[in-house]
Write a protein that binds this DNA or RNA. Structure first.
Lengths: 211, 211
DNA sequence: ACCTGAACACCGTTCAAGT
DNA sequence: ACCTGAACACCGTTCAAGT
């Protein structure tokens, strides 16, 4: 397919396309070579090996996660907007994000978001170590939530299903609770509710008690 | 090695041992056969194929995560004890937990914990849909946090390191904040601080505002 | 019912050889 | 500087054949 001489960028582009469509497991050196119309071994000249090819893809993804622009009137609202933006961007690149995660670069990918959080926590009046704790707590919560959510979506058919797990025996005196837990969660609503609750507590509450 | 006839349980035990020591990628059918002193193909008779062998290991792990016994005087403290217990148990089985996660069974593994949380949220006076939201928010936060923490630990050498990312330019008027963010986080402290803040807000705060 | 080796279709990677 | 095919050491899985 490559009418001109093969290029590292061409290799990366083809690899990214394979990963976006079918996930990282579908990215084999041989399929990639077929896609590019070259010998398998040419790829090695340009990218070293499969591992560093994946590294390069991950690096690209990290770069693509651009700066974050918080919107809203209060710090809480602006932090919520950051959370919402992150959720959207991550959901658009599930396979690549998973690779970033596997490579342990999630933290670095979230640096722009972290800086935005610092700004908002500051605006809310927190300083020093307390502000750092708040930033990290929110960041961990957002990232963690999204990992769990992704996991739920990839879930095979659960057996037993959540609805079977929550028959009324589990909470005999609160059938509405059992019914609510038997229903599937609304992830976006739960996400915003959780972030709001945590942020509210961190920004306005008293300092947490020592353990 | 198997002096007597090969058994499905023997296969599972040997496989679990390989995974615990070197992770799921090290579990190849050929190595497993060598470990058991049988032909590769014998294993197929007992467990079907590699995929269902992994499924069986995951199933075992889910069963092993026994019931949770909350301790403490207040609901908040008892929920914190659940969080601490989960953290410890997960950290003892990193590879197997990762496999559970990859298979989308994390939720099911956490059912005993979820039931404990229901009990505590109830004790704190929440009912119905509001209680269900609180349970799920806490559960998602705990699981999510542990996934992020695991990721951090597996992290290769970060480049640029967190400490380089946080030079004083990022927060010019708060050098203590920059210093705090440049230091590595204390995961257990941050974990308990986060859970405490979220739980406090969910159990005692006003209902969160609509979005 | 249980086990076997041979064979198949896949991998990633190395290397000497080409231009 | 860039590309090639052959070869190597691995995979998971199928299958006909043994007992």
């Amino acid at each position: 397919m490559a009418r001109t001489t093969l290029t590292r960028d061409e290799v990366l582009a083809a690899a990214a396309s394979l990963v976006k469509q079918h996930g990282p497991a579908a990215l084999t050196m041989r399929k990639l070579a077929a896609e590019l119309g070259t010998a398998v071994t040419s790829i090695y000249w340009h990218v070293g090996n499969r591992e560093s090819l994946l590294d390069a893809l991950v690096e690209r993804t990290v770069q693509e996660m651009g700066a974050i622009r918080p919107v809203g009137r209060t710090p809480v609202e602006r932090i919520l907007s950051v959370a919402r933006t992150l959720r959207r961007e991550l959901r658009e690149r599930p396979h690549l994000i998973a690779m970033v995660h596997e490579r342990g670069l999630t933290e670095r990918m979230f640096l722009p978001a972290q800086q935005a959080l610092v700004h908002e926590v500051h605006a809310a009046g927190l300083r020093g170590a307390r502000a750092a704790d708040a930033v990290r707590a929110v960041q961990f919560q957002i990232v963690g939530y999204l990992l769990v959510e992704r996991n739920r979506e990839r879930s095979p058919v659960q057996s037993p299903a959540e609805s079977e797990l929550w028959d009324p025996r589990a909470a005999p005196d609160d059938p509405e609770l059992a019914r609510a837990l038997a229903r599937p969660a609304d992830p976006e609503r739960l996400f915003l509710l959780s972030v709001r609750a945590l942020v509210h507590s961190l920004l306005t509450g008293p300092p947490p008690a020592p353990r």
